[in-house]
């Protein structure tokens, strides 16, 4: 550790300037736009913009869909990646190939994978073959609310590996002697899982969950590839609403929408943070 070295501020300078210019200042500056009316006189209108945007049907639709899609993706990825990491751990050193293969989709560009996805989810495609083989009717995967399934699947397929690596590293960091000692004391598999593994992994699990959720808001990408700028109502996300507002230069609406969305996200993360603090009081 270096103490009282003035050079640290020189090292920090480029990074801080960039963060200030492209993240912090815009974030607070945007508040100004959200409370002005944006006309030639540019008067202060308080929360009028917020009220108007909140009552807009497309905003409500976009907000609802964004939350729905992220609610489908984030917990799925979280649970599946934990299960996979646990399975990989039972394989010991034989797990390397599997782990690396599971990570491969993370680097694949989603637009390149889209074609094969459209073929798989076609009315006569593999998924409907499977459905018929299992005794169900064919589904129109590429229309209406069924469209959510291919989108979520593409997203999960792509992002599962990264969360799994995070969980894997947390699991491998649990000291083996803890388990040995527990077995000596006569603790069974369940006791070990809930008294040793879970508390040890919990802080990482929290991080994985937060990252998975923040990234799940980026599912716009997959939606855009399948549905374009004006997709079906079931998959119209907040980002579509904002992009369309941008093209009409309605900055007041876009910023108000962004801050209202952020409020919801912050409430969610604050709740999760509190749950983490309750679970592991010894962690910061």
């Amino acid at each position: 550790m270096f103490r009282k070295k003035k050079i640290v501020f020189l090292l920090l300078l480029p990074g801080l300037l960039g963060l200030l210019a492209f993240y912090v200042v815009p974030f607070f500056g945007g508040i100004y736009f959200s409370v002005m009316d944006g006309t030639f006189e540019n008067q202060f209108v308080g929360i009028d913009n917020y009220v108007r945007v909140f009552q807009n049907r497309m905003f409500q639709l976009g907000l609802k869909n964004t939350w729905t899609l992220s609610l489908m993706c984030a917990p799925t990825i979280w649970l599946l990646s934990f299960l996979l990491a646990a399975m990989l751990k039972t394989l010991k050193e034989r797990s390397t190939t599997f782990r690396n293969l599971l990570l491969l989709p993370y680097l694949m560009p989603s637009s390149a994978m889209l074609l094969i996805w459209l073929i798989m989810f076609d009315y006569g495609g593999v998924w409907n073959r499977l459905a018929v083989a299992l005794g169900y009717e064919r589904v129109l995967w590429l229309e209406g609310s069924a469209l959510r399934f291919p989108i979520v699947l593409l997203y999960v397929w792509k992002n599962l590996g990264f969360s799994m690596v995070l969980f894997s590293s947390a699991l491998s960091a649990v000291h083996p002697s803890l388990y040995e000692y527990a077995s000596l004391e006569g603790a069974g598999w369940w006791t070990q899982a809930f008294r040793i593994t879970l508390p040890q992994v919990w802080p990482t699990a929290f991080l994985v969950f937060v990252l998975a959720w923040v990234n799940a808001f980026k599912i716009f990408k997959e939606v855009y590839f399948i549905g374009g700028s004006y997709p079906a109502e079931e998959i119209y996300t907040l980002q579509h609403y904002m992009n369309n507002k941008f093209s009409r230069l309605e900055y007041q609406d876009v910023t108000s929408a962004a801050y209202m969305f952020e409020l919801g996200v912050m409430v969610l993360f604050a709740m999760m943070y509190l749950s983490k603090a309750v679970r592991s009081p010894s962690e910061s």
Partner: peptide
């Protein structure tokens, strides 16, 4: 943990 949607508009 700011979603892109939030930073985008002011940016």
């Amino acid at each position: 943990i700011l979603p892109f949607q939030v930073t985008m508009a002011p940016s």
